[in-house]
Design a protein around this nucleic acid. Structure first.
Lengths: 222, 222
DNA sequence: CAGTGGTCTAGACCACAGG
DNA sequence: CTGTGGTCTAGACCACTGG
């Protein structure tokens, strides 16, 4: 049923922009219940191939904005799944006032003090990613009692501080000499970078920048 | 209903690893039909917060692998949605044998000849992204008759060559002097790069590398 | 206003995998 | 073997939105 609809799209029997029959008609044509048609079409629409609007009906998407779903890497797991040994090294940890850019991103008051962590994750002993994180002790007070020397903040947060929403960005940055040293790279190398801020309601839990060693490629399928 | 389940997860009433009641019990507790419970739980599971297995039941995910869904940019649209003017410049177009790496990626025979396009997309007159594309004329013969001088291959393909699957990767590359010139960048700049190969069944339609001008950031929410 | 998708119900059978 | 989720049916009412 869902497969049949996908066939009609791929075979271009239904072309981009076309209006397809409504759910009731399709149910009759396929000899199934409308609920079934609804589930099939909804599922396809979630993938971006169909656009549905009440009263207006269901159309083949003009520009099939295929959505790639990518798993946010949890570093240890990502490394261990490749049968590499995982290691972690805390560079430093201190309470400090975040710079204004970070304060804005986390929507913090001017006087706020945050926990600042810097660490390097290693795969088979080689630097894999450099982590620069600000943690909000007002939202997660337990972090003040934890020495993030053996367990990474990355991992601890996943288990202990569920978030309700977050934003994430991907970019390329040039290695400064300091970061190059952490990653065993050369100054000026192009480094794949992920920045992520997560929230519990309206309160920022943490904001982190992950700068990957040269050659890192993030892959997925569509 | 779905919100109530999410609340119990976020409030840690149900913690990572916990087994939650089965659908029938939840339906009774919430006073609704099992179908409704099923839809709610399935929807949450798709987001990665729950793991469901027949007979084993439904568990709160140990490591909530949040999935980010990101829209594959269609360049013209991405630019115009920001109210910038879009422009496109074809650099060159030729039939050629792809290098071995590309031949392998597209699973082509050794003798195969492909259409090789290089182009630059501009936003408000400024270089935005450099596109280096190989197109398979065996799968999409029409491309041999099209001069991709006014319409970009990017756009033409979206409308005319639906694909059934694809893979995509994101990385950072250093600007060569040639690419730096196309993008108005400096040699050595860190450039965000997307590589994508799309397939119609087992036949590769096209494989493209998009190298973005310095400062490009791809964003999404989770 | 009226047609469309959105969502729900109550019930049924099936497919899979755990014990 | 049996409990679980997966999927379906037939029918109903609702919510939105286009004309």
């Amino acid at each position: 049923m869902q497969a049949e609809v996908l066939d009609r799209i791929h075979s271009r029997q239904w072309k981009p922009g076309d209006l397809i029959p409504n759910e009731a008609d399709l149910a009759e044509e396929f000899g199934c219940a409308r609920t079934t048609v609804n589930r099939a079409l909804r599922s396809i629409a979630e993938g971006g191939l169909l656009e549905r609007r009440r009263k207006a009906g269901t159309r083949i998407a003009m520009r099939p904005v295929r959505k790639a779903t990518l798993n946010i890497p949890i570093i240890r797991q990502e490394i261990e799944e490749r049968d590499q040994s995982y290691d972690y090294h805390l560079v430093d940890s201190e309470l400090a006032k975040p710079p204004t850019g970070m304060r804005a991103r986390m929507k913090l008051p001017a006087t706020s003090t945050q926990l600042h962590l810097r660490a390097v994750h290693l795969a088979d002993g080689q630097p894999y990613v450099y982590e620069d994180r600000w943690l909000n002790p007002n939202v997660v007070p337990e972090v003040l009692k934890i020495q993030f020397e053996t367990v990474s903040a990355n991992e601890w947060l996943v288990m202990n501080a569920p978030f309700t929403k977050g934003n994430i960005s991907f970019s390329a940055t040039q290695a400064t000499s300091e970061i190059a040293e952490f990653l065993g790279a050369s100054k000026g190398d192009a480094l794949f970078t992920i920045e992520r801020t997560t929230w519990d309601g309206d309160a920022a839990i943490t904001s982190v920048r992950m700068i990957f060693a040269p050659g890192y490629i993030m892959r997925t399928t569509i």
